[in-house]
């Protein structure tokens, strides 16, 4: 079975971004970039499925400007077999990305697509569900366990009330949650080897997809600041303040 993994280049999870003074966007110049953490989990899951003999090939795909080749190379170093960049400098929104990925799905015919549940920059939590809809696949979102049993993919999902198990027909789409696995690090020899693995480029035009944004960002602003609080020195002082000053107990 072939597995397609979609990865996104995002600002590193440890960076606290700042809003630009002109309120047009956040400042992304000279900030550290990385693979979206949920996509790292997706890559790891695909590689484990290959290592256990369930998958035969792992293809990673990312849509964006040439910088995202860096994240594709990392995915190759982690163990993916080949990479596809959907090259464009346009701003991409989830629906457009889902359409681009759907065109890749049509070409590659994977048995399983694994994606992150959420990109930590846009916090959209949409693209996987949208791709599943467009490709007519069932979706196992927010997965904490994935197991192939015969022709059925068993997915344990993290839901608000606890855990849910669903069975999906193949081909299927999974989006990862934090507990699915713990991603490995790329070793130096593998980073070197990854440089020679194939990385193909396609454009939205090649795929016949119109990526015109549907949403216009009118402004990006700072959230309200919290005023600095006070330190208390004892538990009894804390309780006292919560009762009288804050009035919440």
């Amino acid at each position: 079975m072939k597995i397609l993994v979609a990865v996104k280049r995002v600002v590193d999870a440890n960076v606290k971004v700042r809003v630009k003074p002109d309120n047009s966007d956040v400042e992304l110049n000279n900030v550290k970039m990385a693979i979206n953490p949920f996509c790292e989990i997706a890559i790891e899951e695909a590689i484990r499925l290959k290592e256990s003999g369930v998958a035969s090939e792992v293809v990673v795909v990312s849509a964006g400007s040439n910088e995202c080749q860096e994240q594709l190379r990392t995915a190759l170093a982690l163990g993916a077999d080949r990479a596809i960049q959907i090259a464009t400098d346009e701003t991409l929104q989830p629906l457009a990305i889902a359409k681009l990925l759907n065109a890749v799905v049509e070409r590659e015919q994977p048995g399983l697509v694994i994606m992150g549940k959420q990109s930590i920059d846009g916090d959209n939590n949409q693209t996987g569900q949208m791709l599943a809809a467009l490709s007519g696949m069932p979706q196992g979102t927010f997965a904490s366990e994935v197991k192939l049993e015969g022709e059925e993919l068993l997915v344990t999902r993290e839901v608000d009330g606890g855990l849910q198990q669903v069975g999906l027909k193949l081909p299927a789409l999974v989006t990862t949650d934090l507990r699915l696995n713990e991603p490995r690090y790329a070793s130096l020899p593998n980073i070197m080897k990854a440089k020679r693995k194939p990385l193909a480029q396609l454009t939205p035009d090649d795929l016949g997809v119109d990526v015109t944004p549907r949403l216009t960002t009118l402004k990006v602003s700072n959230p309200p600041e919290r005023a600095a609080g006070t330190m208390v020195s004892t538990v009894s002082e804390l309780v006292e303040k919560l009762k009288t000053e804050a009035g919440v107990l």
């Binding site: 629906l95 949208m130 927010f142």
Partner: peptide
């Protein structure tokens, strides 16, 4: 909620419209 997040993008894509999340 996890229910809303799971469902709505699938509907949006079938309608060929964007979703505004959260």
């Amino acid at each position: 909620t996890t229910q809303g997040k799971n469902l709505l993008p699938r509907v949006a894509a079938l309608l060929d419209v964007a979703q505004v999340s959260d």
